[in-house]
Amino acid sequence: MVDADWKPSMGFIYGELRKATQEIKGALNDNENAYKPILDVIKEKSSKRLDTCLHMAAYILNPYYYYYDPLAKLDVEADDSIVEILGVLFPGDYELQNQIKMVELPMYKNKLEKFDRPIAIKACAVNNEKFDPANWWDSYGGSAPNLKRIAIRILSLTTSSSGCEIIWSIFEGVSNFKS
């Protein structure tokens, strides 16, 4: 998914990580003693890499998760990431930040105005090769123009595992070194 060529992946990283966590818990019959060591490793490896404000904002702004994953609405930390992103994108422009947070974001979250169209809601119900959340925002986000611009920018980002691959190559070279 990270290096996929078929669609930008930023909008899916955090959500798929949360989904995998829930699947691991379910596969281990919600036995905390069984799943906790696994989740601890995942948390350690993903911390500050796959759970940044940008990843969490992409999760909230991806309607596939926000409209269909009940956990998305309960994720206070992810929801707060929107405020952090607004502060970075519009430093000092508190009027615009407030417009987005208090007017436009609730419109999206509560499926109001153009967000309540049946076609908009159906268009994000399935995450397949055709669903691109940035395109969804371009098509249905017109009643929240400032949030639409932010969502498209964030959800159009691609990700890459090349940083990991470089490290793996270095480690392979070290492990193959013969004196």
Rank of each mutant, 00 (worst) to 15 (best):
K45V: 12
T52N: 10
V88W: 02
E44F: 15
L71D: 13
S46G: 14
C53R: 03
P91R: 07
M56E: 05
E44V: 11
Y64V: 03
D93W: 07
I85K: 08
F90W: 08
E77D: 10
K48A: 13
S46M: 13
D93S: 09
R49Q: 14
L50I: 00
I60E: 05
L74I: 00
K48V: 13
T52F: 08
S81Q: 05
Y94V: 08
L50T: 00
E84C: 13
P91Y: 06
G92M: 02
G87F: 00
D93M: 07
I60T: 05
A58N: 01
E44G: 14
S47N: 12
L86N: 04
L61I: 02
E77K: 15
Y66D: 01
D75Q: 07
L50M: 09
A78I: 07
D93E: 09
D80Y: 10
D51L: 02
N62K: 07
T52A: 11
G92E: 03
H55M: 07
D51Q: 06
A57I: 06
A57H: 09
E77S: 15
V83Y: 04
Y59S: 04
A58W: 02
L86V: 08
L89S: 05
Y66K: 00
E84D: 11
D75K: 03
K45P: 02
L71V: 13
Y66T: 02
A78M: 06
L54P: 03
V76W: 03
N62M: 12
L61K: 03
E84M: 10
D69I: 00
V76G: 09
H55C: 09
Y64M: 01
D79P: 04
C53Y: 09
K48M: 11
I60Y: 05
D75V: 07
L61W: 02
N62Y: 08
Y68G: 02
G92Y: 02
I82D: 11
A78K: 07
P91T: 04
A58E: 00
S47M: 11
D79C: 09
G87H: 02
S47Y: 14
F90M: 10
S46R: 14
I82Q: 10
Y65G: 01
N62L: 15
M56W: 03
I60G: 10
V76E: 07
E44N: 14
S81V: 06
K73R: 12
D80A: 12
L74Q: 15
A78P: 05
I85C: 06
E77A: 15
D93R: 11
L71K: 14
Y65F: 15
H55W: 06
S81G: 10
I85R: 06
Y66R: 01
S46V: 12
K73T: 03
P91K: 04
T52Q: 10
K48T: 12
V88T: 08
Y67P: 05
A57T: 14
P70D: 15
Y64A: 08
D75H: 04
I85D: 00
I85G: 09
V83L: 10
A72F: 01
A78R: 08
T52M: 12
